[in-house]
């Protein structure tokens, strides 16, 4: 039974498939968020060292994870789009970027808000914070490049190139920043020096990151559908879709 990989890569069928999947993902994300927050605030004990401030971890760590994974996934889809010339994969890559940039910003914001009470400063040139900041620049570069090019095909491919070049550079940037940090500051102040994670804290954090996953998938599918409509505006199936609506 040959799996027809490309059945869902045609915009119309993907459009309807995504339409069915979005409610599914958004509902699970809402449920998981509620559960994660409940555990985070009501079940997880007070941390003896950081008292209550550590509860920011429940959104800080998931946001940081999401920012990194979404960049890799974006680069993956961009590479597929470049290699197989499937317009839809590049559309998905374009749809991922804003959500990834949002999570990077959130990771930086919550990191600063957590750093203030713990280390007394909003911003510490810690290796991870700095590479997170550079990751934000990579996202912005990707989106700016795609916005500057009018012809969608060239925008997709150019975005793919910069995303792949970025992905190759992420480990380099991370290690050079780590090396640079130890050069200047001596022992780095590690971000999560909180003691061994109590199980409830860990479960709370994992549920929150799952919730972020579901949320991102739902939002990215919504944005992909919008991009599909934008790019296929004068095709037949869009107009009869429009006729029906």
């Amino acid at each position: 039974m040959a799996i027809n990989w490309f059945k869902y890569s045609s915009p119309p069928s993907f459009y309807s498939l995504a339409g069915k999947m979005i409610p599914l993902f958004s509902i699970t994300s809402i449920v998981l968020f509620a559960l994660g927050l409940y555990i985070g605030f009501f079940v997880a004990p007070t941390d003896f060292q950081q008292s209550e401030a550590y509860r920011i971890i429940f959104i800080h760590v998931p946001a940081a994870w999401m920012s990194m994974f979404l960049y890799l996934i974006m680069a993956g889809w961009a590479a597929i789009g470049l290699a197989f010339n499937t317009r839809l994969s590049s559309m998905i890559a374009t749809a991922i970027a804003p959500t990834g940039a949002m999570f990077t910003f959130l990771a930086l914001w919550t990191g600063a808000f957590w750093g203030k009470p713990m280390w007394g400063t909003w911003w510490v040139w810690d290796a991870r914070l700095t590479s997170e900041l550079i990751l934000l620049f990579l996202y912005i570069g990707f989106m700016a490049l795609q916005a500057a090019i009018d012809d969608p095909r060239r925008a997709d491919k150019a975005g793919a190139v910069i995303a792949l070049v970025g992905v190759v550079n992420i480990p380099i940037i991370y290690f050079s920043v780590k090396w640079w940090n130890t050069l200047h500051q001596g022992a780095t102040v590690s971000l999560t020096q909180s003691p061994k994670m109590a199980t409830t804290m860990l479960t709370g954090m994992l549920i929150m990151s799952l919730a972020c996953w579901m949320y991102s998938i739902a939002v990215i599918l919504m944005r992909t559908r919008t991009i599909i409509l934008e790019r296929e505006r004068n095709t037949m199936w869009v107009s009869d879709l429009q006729g029906a609506a």
Binding site: F137, I140, V177
Partner: peptide, 17 residues
Amino acid sequence: VLVSLLVLPLYIPVLIF
């Protein structure tokens, strides 16, 4: 301007070392 936005993050390791 766009070139600087794209290329500066990639220059950072060279600058650091």
